[in-house]
Structures are given as C-alpha cells and as structure tokens.
C-alpha cells in the first residue's frame, strides 16, 4: 500500500536545519493497521504529512498504492488525497460553520460526486459512526467524541484505501478513546489500511504493527538506536 525509500525531509530556517526525516524507509502492506510511535519531535507528524501527500520531501521515493507519487503536481496530489486517503486529525478539524451533514460532504463535493450519491455516502458513513441522527447539528453542539466520529465519517465517506490518523484520541478521555479505537479497528476489518500516530502504548498495542521513530529514523526499541539496515536501509515493519 505504502512504500517509502530513503525519504529525507529537512526544515530550514536562516540559521538552523532540522532533519525531520532522515533516509526513512518504510513499507506498509495493504489492509494492515499500523501504529507510529515515538517521542515529540521524532518525525511522526512529518511522516504522516509525507504519507498523506500533505507535504513534500527532499529526497527518496514514495509509492502509494503502486503509484509513484514522488513528483506529482499539486493538483494530482489533491486528487489522490481526495480519492485514496482519509484523514483523521487530533483536533478533529471539523468546519465550525457547517453542520454534520455538510462537514462529511466536504471531500465528496471536491470529488464532484452527484448530489444523490453524496447523500447516500454521507448517510452510510454516519450510520457506521452512529451519528445519523445528528445531521443538522453543528460541531459546537457535539461532544469531543462525537466530533471525532464525524471526522471519521468524513474520512470514510469517500471510501479511501488508506486512513491516516494523527493522534485521533489525543483530545479524548479514555472511554471515548476506546470507542474511537473500536471504530478504527472496525474500519480496518473492511480492508482499509490504517496508519495511526499515537503516544499511547496501550492504543498502539491494538494495532497489528508498530513503527518507532527517533530523530526522523526508524529505531529498534530494544537497541534504542537506529536500525542498522543493509543495502537500501529498508525497515522491517513488523510486530
């Protein structure tokens, strides 16, 4: 599903260079549920941004769903984000002026789907997250857990091949967090690949596999150092 080779990303200011990703090589199989872990500043979000085509990288190659996305134009990356990737954000990122229905509708409109098909997709995805009775509610009228469910419905509505979740339970209490994890597992069971960034080892343990990052590289937890990789430094992403 996702194959990154020697991906590097450097943020430069006038005096400082920050290596957010250093020749990172990662492979994620289609249909898997992967947790990405690591301390703050280790490159988790940069990895997620790169994986989701939200940001570009400096060197390396990236194949998503078999397609080389290393040098796509902005418009093509928008199309892939819209059609193949569903995003779930830590702070939900719902549009406050739009009700639940319209929020879920946002990516579908960008896809140019006809109104009837959009309505059906919205209804089905809200059924999955259990919020089909809240169509007309504004985000401010919902709890944090409900807002994240709406965000998940929005990610699901376009039937993506890949779900990228950036600390999806970071702003929720443990009960709500468990609900959200249940939902992600349920989504993954349908064949959708899920990559989740999290700080919480307990939640990470519910994933099939874990990637641990430190200083922009994948590390072996027992050695607590960058994994010495042969050849192209291909990382073994395993359980």
């Amino acid at each position: 599903m996702l194959e990154m080779k020697n991906i590097s990303k450097v943020y430069r200011t006038e005096h400082v260079e920050t290596h957010a990703l250093s020749e990172l090589t990662v492979t994620v199989e289609a249909g898997s549920f992967v947790a990405v872990m690591g301390p703050s500043g280790c490159g988790k979000t940069t990895f997620l941004n790169t994986a989701g085509l939200l940001d570009t990288f400096d060197t390396g190659t990236y194949h998503l769903d078999g397609q080389d996305v290393s040098k796509l134009k902005d418009r093509e990356m928008s199309r892939i984000r819209n059609e193949k990737i569903g995003f779930i954000f830590q702070t939900f990122n719902l549009i406050p002026d739009l009700n639940v229905f319209d929020n879920v509708d946002v990516p579908l409109r960008y896809r140019g789907m006809p109104a009837g098909a959009r309505r059906q997709a919205i209804q089905e995805s809200l059924d999955i997250v259990g919020l089909s009775s809240r169509l007309k509610h504004l985000p401010s009228q919902l709890s944090g857990g409900q807002q994240q469910r709406v965000a998940i419905a929005r990610a699901l509505a376009g039937t993506p091949r890949l779900i990228l979740a950036d600390e999806p339970t970071g702003n929720l209490d443990s009960a709500m967090a468990n609900d959200i994890m249940d939902l992600l597992e349920k989504i993954n069971e349908t064949g959708t690949t899920v990559i989740m960034v999290t700080h919480d080892p307990e939640l990470a343990n519910r994933a099939h596999r874990q990637i641990h990052l430190l200083d922009g590289r994948q590390i072996d937890l027992e050695m607590d150092e960058p994994v010495p990789l042969a050849g192209d430094r291909a990382a073994t992403v395993g359980e």
């Binding site: 928008s78 995003f87 960008y110």
Partner: peptide, 16 residues
C-alpha cells in the same frame, strides 16, 4: 487558515 489547510487535505485543489 487552518480550515483552508483542512479543505486542502481533504482534496480541495488550489482552484477550488
């Protein structure tokens, strides 16, 4: 601004 970023993440092109 953040909302625009979100829309872009969800697939909005610059033209959109």
């Amino acid at each position: 601004t953040r909302q625009i970023g979100t829309r872009r993440a969800l697939g909005a092109t610059r033209a959109a």
